[in-house]
C-alpha cells in the first residue's frame, strides 16, 4: 500500500489509482467536464489539473491532469493551490470564449469568479467543448458511429462525411452523456432523429411506451445476446413484472 500527501493530509492509495479518483474518494472536489464513469479518462478538458511535487524535487512542482496521473507513493498533491486556481481559471476563460452558452461551463466560470472573458467570445458558439465523452462512449460501448474529425481549430465531432451513418443505431448514448447538451436530437413519440438519421422506435409490448430502435435492438441482440423480446419491454413494465414475481415468492 502506498501513501500520498493530499492537501496536507496523508492518504492511502491503491496501486494504479489515478489522483482524481483518490481525491473524489477523500471528498475533495476537483472540477471536470470530460470525466465519465462509463469510459476511460482522456485528459481532454484539462480542468482537473492539480499541482504535484516530491521532497527530492527541491521545491519544483508541476501541474498534471489528475484524471490521468497515477497516485505514486510519496507524491505531494495540492488540488487548489494558487497555480492550480490560476491555470484552471485560464482554461475556463478559453472554454467561455468557445462555448459561452454551455451551462456547466458558465457555472464553473461563475465559481471561479470570471465576470468578463478576456478573449473574443463566440456568442452563438457551439456548445461542444470537445471533451470526447460522446465519441469515447460510442466507440467503446456502442458501434463507433461518430468520431473527431480534423484537428486544431477545425476539430469537431461528426459522423463519417457528415452523412447519416450506417453504424449509428440511434441509442442516444452520445447525446445523453454530453455534459453540455451539444448534440441535437429529436425524440417525438415513436420517431427519433439524431445525426441526420431518423429511426422508428419500437413500442413496449406491455404498455406501448417507446423502448428501443430496431437498429439498437438488433445490435444489442447480436453483441450482448439479449433477445429482442426482452428489449421490447419498457423499464416500467419490467419493474412491474419483477415486483409481481417477488410478490408471488413472498406469499
Amino acid at each position: 500500500m502506498s501513501e500520498i500527501i493530499l492537501n496536507g493530509r496523508k492518504v492511502k492509495v491503491r496501486k494504479g489509482e489515478f489522483l482524481l479518483a483518490v481525491a473524489r474518494r477523500e471528498g475533495i472536489e476537483i472540477p471536470t467536464l470530460c470525466q465519465h464513469d462509463a469510459v476511460e479518462p482522456a485528459g481532454a478538458c484539462r480542468l482537473c489539473l492539480v499541482e504535484v511535487t516530491r521532497p527530492e524535487w527541491e521545491g519544483w512542482s508541476k501541474l498534471v491532469t489528475s484524471c490521468l496521473f497515477p497516485a505514486e507513493d510519496g507524491l505531494i498533491v495540492s488540488t487548489d493551490s494558487a497555480p492550480v486556481h490560476k491555470t484552471r481559471k485560464g482554461i475556463l476563460e478559453l472554454l467561455m470564449a468557445r462555448s459561452p452558452n454551455a451551462v456547466p461551463v458558465r457555472e464553473l466560470a461563475r465559481q471561479y469568479g470570471i465576470e468578463q472573458c478576456p478573449y473574443p467570445v463566440q456568442h452563438d458558439g457551439d456548445n461542444c467543448i470537445l471533451c470526447d465523452i460522446c465519441t469515447r462512449v460510442c466507440q467503446n460501448l456502442v458501434t463507433g458511429a461518430i468520431s473527431r474529425i480534423d484537428r486544431g481549430v477545425g476539430k469537431r465531432v461528426a459522423t463519417p462525411f457528415a452523412e447519416p451513418s450506417t453504424d449509428c443505431v440511434g441509442c442516444l448514448a452520445c447525446a445523453k452523456s454530453c455534459p453540455t447538451a451539444a448534440i441535437p436530437y429529436e425524440d417525438e413519440g415513436l420517431r427519433r432523429t439524431i445525426w441526420g438519421k431518423t429511426f422508428e422506435v419500437a413500442s413496449c409490448a406491455g404498455c406501448g411506451a417507446p423502448t428501443v430502435t430496431a437498429e439498437q435492438a438488433a445490435w444489442i441482440e447480436q453483441s450482448k445476446g439479449v433477445s429482442r423480446e426482452d428489449q421490447l419491454v419498457c423499464d416500467r413494465c419490467k419493474a412491474q413484472k419483477t415486483a409481481a414475481a417477488y410478490q408471488k415468492l413472498a406469499w
Binding site: T135, C138, Q139, T143, G144, A145, I146, S147, R148, I149, D150, R151, T159, P160, F161, S165, T166, D167
Partner: peptide, 13 residues
C-alpha cells in the same frame, strides 16, 4: 475491423 468513423478521424488528423 474498425468503424468507419475511426478511419475518418485518423484520415483527417
Amino acid at each position: 475491423a474498425v468503424p468507419l468513423a475511426r478511419v475518418m478521424s485518423v484520415a483527417t488528423f
